[in-house]
């Protein structure tokens, strides 16, 4: 490339899809409409972010089941709790930053403490906007993991979102879902037997040299990275952990134990503090499983504003950076060294 052209923040604002990647538009909105056709108890509520969380699709299909609560996230959670008390299944949407930082007490006590059937949908999880720390929910999982009763889902693509919406509608209890909005990539359709299930981690690819356990957007990156690593002669397994809490400890332990010579990489679109990485590290330590362990995640910092591709490279969560991190830590040379 000649003189380096600065990327614009607006690039990728409506989609985190790579060039030429197959996508589905607003999978959450369409899946909710489908679930609502089957279940009249489903209602949609938002805090002035209907259009920006793909809930507008539901609002168009079911205007009488759509509640615009205004830019008031505390009220959104309380009113969601009230709706659930009256037997409805509210899907409440806002951005992840506002759900986690601003409405925590209301989710905790009005919803989670009483196990109410409210589905909290958070847009812009992790680093999926270039707007800077006001909009980047880099610590939402860390915040929510400490909340009893709350299930945390981090879907990977449009297929995962479509299946998780129906699964959430069928599940009785509070759930927080990290939403990918707009034009969302479809990547899981290459794995014929994949099926999203709440609480289950699924191995998507097998490989003897490395194991990448990932959630959300980073599963897409992990799959792409595994493809590229294969060309370099490194076989990486990929396990998709779409439910961060409760963690599928059984499947994760079985996968790690099946080959403890493989270094484990946990990749997440989240701070390295308090997310999936630390969750799995603590599991392995508690169970006495000794493996080389690496985190691929966002640094414990307030992140820069800018264009997402630039930021994903800068903070190590682009496919290119994942490939580099894995390759660096899986050296063939190291593998043939005699162990002491």
């Amino acid at each position: 490339m000649s003189a380096k052209k600065k990327l614009k923040t607006s690039s990728m604002i409506a989609s985190i899809a790579g060039e030429g990647q197959p996508v589905t538009a607003a999978p959450f909105g369409h899946a909710l409409v489908e679930a609502a056709e089957k279940n009249p108890k489903i209602v949609g509520m938002t805090a002035d972010l209907g259009k920006y969380t793909d809930l507008h699709i539901f609002a168009q299909a079911y205007p009488d089941r759509y509640y615009q609560m205004g830019m008031a996230e505390q009220l959104l959670m309380m009113a969601g709790a009230g709706m659930a008390r009256e037997g409805f299944i509210p899907f409440v949407t806002t951005y992840s930053v506002f759900a986690s930082r601003r409405a925590y007490d209301f989710i905790c006590l009005a919803i989670a403490e009483e196990k109410l059937n409210v589905k909290i949908i958070g847009g812009l999880p992790g680093l999926t906007t270039g707007y800077g720390p006001s909009h980047q929910a880099t610590e939402d999982v860390a915040i929510f993991r400490g909340m009893p009763n709350l299930t945390i889902i981090d879907p990977c693509d449009a297929i995962d979102i479509e299946q998780s919406v129906q699964a959430m509608a069928d599940f009785d209890g509070p759930v927080y879902l990290r939403l990918l909005r707009g034009k969302v990539p479809r990547v899981l359709d290459r794995f014929d037997d994949y099926r999203f299930e709440i609480g289950k981690a699924k191995r998507l690819m097998n490989g003897k040299d490395a194991l990448i356990i990932s959630s959300g957007l980073m599963t897409t990156r992990a799959i792409e990275a595994a493809d590229e690593l294969k060309e370099k002669g490194i076989e990486a397994a990929v396990m998709h952990c779409a439910t961060i809490k409760p963690l599928d400890t059984e499947a994760i332990l079985a996968e790690v134990r099946s080959n403890t010579d493989r270094p484990v990489f946990v990749a997440e679109n989240h701070s390295v503090v308090g997310g999936l990485g630390e969750s799995i590290a603590s599991l392995l330590m508690k169970e006495g499983v000794s493996v080389k362990f690496h985190q691929i995640g966002l640094p414990d910092e307030f992140l820069d504003a800018g264009a997402l591709p630039t930021l994903h490279d800068r903070y190590g969560i682009s496919t290119r950076e994942v490939v580099k991190t894995v390759a660096k830590n899986v050296s063939v040379e190291e593998e043939i060294k005699p162990t002491i």
């Binding site: 309380m78 009113a79 969601g80 709790a81 009230g82 008390r85 009256e86 409805f88 509210p90």
Partner: peptide, 15 residues
């Protein structure tokens, strides 16, 4: 918390 929960319940009762 109470009044906001009340708003949701009142909306639910109307539904």
């Amino acid at each position: 918390h109470g009044l906001g929960i009340g708003v949701g319940m009142a909306l639910g009762l109307k539904r």
